Simulated scan of single mutants.
Amino acid sequence: MPSMFPSPATGGDDINRRPLNEPQADEHTIPTVLKVVFWMLFATAAFMIFSGLVMYTAGYTGPEDVEESYKDVVVNNQKFIGGINAFAGIVIAALTSQLPRGGKNPRRILLGIVLLVVLTDLLSFATRAGGFALAVIAVLLALEALLMFRPSINAHIERNHMARVMGRKS
């Protein structure tokens, strides 16, 4: 019977403390969620590289009846944002390749880069320095960062990290 006064010691049927219905996998298999995040990150990185190169090489595409100094500022902003996206896409692809082996540090660095790219792309989209693709990239990266820290992936990475630590000391 549920109590009117919540406490840390429940009767055992707390819906928030029930185990997840994820099947227990073998220690040597890669979780399905990690495989999905892996391929999503690679696809997003490829899209980032492509859109970054397009932005870098596009030139001015706005109205022609503006001053040349304004056109130069717009082109410089596009090149800057395009260069950031292309470089970040390469770095994300490189760090993503290390995820299945389960290192803690590559995942932390990847999260930091993802957060910086999300902020940069959303600000660029909001200030109209880039197109709709920047908003799509930001949403995809935010979703992938959320999925990257699922409990099954955390357990996989912790298992691999402990295997490395125990392997070094002995």
Results as ranks from 00 to 15, higher is better:
residue 1 M to K: 03
residue 4 M to A: 06
residue 11 G to C: 09
residue 13 D to Q: 12
residue 13 D to A: 12
residue 14 D to H: 10
residue 16 N to K: 08
residue 16 N to M: 11
residue 17 R to L: 09
residue 18 R to P: 00
residue 18 R to N: 09
residue 19 P to E: 02
residue 20 L to W: 08
residue 21 N to K: 09
residue 24 Q to T: 10
residue 24 Q to N: 06
residue 29 T to H: 12
residue 29 T to D: 12
residue 29 T to W: 05
residue 30 I to K: 11
residue 32 T to P: 07
residue 32 T to D: 14
residue 33 V to R: 14
residue 34 L to Y: 10
residue 39 W to I: 13
residue 41 L to D: 12
residue 42 F to H: 15
residue 42 F to S: 04
residue 42 F to R: 08
residue 44 T to M: 04
residue 45 A to Q: 03
residue 46 A to H: 00
residue 48 M to Y: 10
residue 49 I to S: 10
residue 50 F to V: 15
residue 50 F to W: 13
residue 50 F to I: 14
residue 51 S to P: 02
residue 52 G to H: 06
residue 53 L to G: 14
residue 55 M to A: 15
residue 55 M to G: 12
residue 56 Y to Q: 07
residue 57 T to M: 08
residue 60 Y to R: 03
residue 61 T to V: 11
residue 61 T to W: 14
residue 62 G to I: 09
residue 66 V to D: 01
residue 66 V to E: 02
residue 66 V to W: 02
residue 68 E to C: 02
residue 69 S to K: 11
residue 70 Y to T: 11
residue 71 K to G: 04
residue 74 V to L: 05
residue 77 N to K: 12
residue 81 I to D: 04
residue 82 G to Y: 04
residue 86 A to R: 00
residue 88 A to I: 03
residue 90 I to W: 03
residue 91 V to F: 03
residue 94 A to Y: 01
residue 97 S to E: 10
residue 98 Q to M: 11
residue 100 P to C: 11
residue 100 P to Y: 11
residue 104 K to P: 03
residue 105 N to A: 13
residue 105 N to P: 00
residue 106 P to K: 04
residue 106 P to R: 06
residue 109 I to Q: 06
residue 109 I to F: 01
residue 109 I to H: 03
residue 112 G to Q: 03
residue 112 G to A: 00
residue 116 L to I: 09
residue 121 D to T: 01
residue 122 L to T: 10
residue 123 L to T: 04
residue 123 L to R: 05
residue 124 S to D: 08
residue 125 F to K: 08
residue 125 F to Q: 06
residue 129 A to V: 12
residue 130 G to R: 07
residue 131 G to C: 04
residue 133 A to M: 13
residue 134 L to Q: 13
residue 135 A to R: 09
residue 135 A to H: 05
residue 136 V to P: 03
residue 137 I to S: 09
residue 137 I to G: 00
residue 138 A to F: 00
residue 138 A to V: 01
residue 139 V to F: 14
residue 139 V to S: 05
residue 142 A to R: 06
residue 143 L to N: 04
residue 146 L to T: 14
residue 147 L to W: 12
residue 147 L to G: 08
residue 152 S to F: 00
residue 152 S to T: 06
residue 154 N to M: 06
residue 155 A to H: 09
residue 156 H to C: 01
residue 156 H to E: 05
residue 157 I to A: 08
residue 159 R to D: 11
residue 165 V to Y: 10
residue 167 G to Q: 14
residue 170 S to F: 12
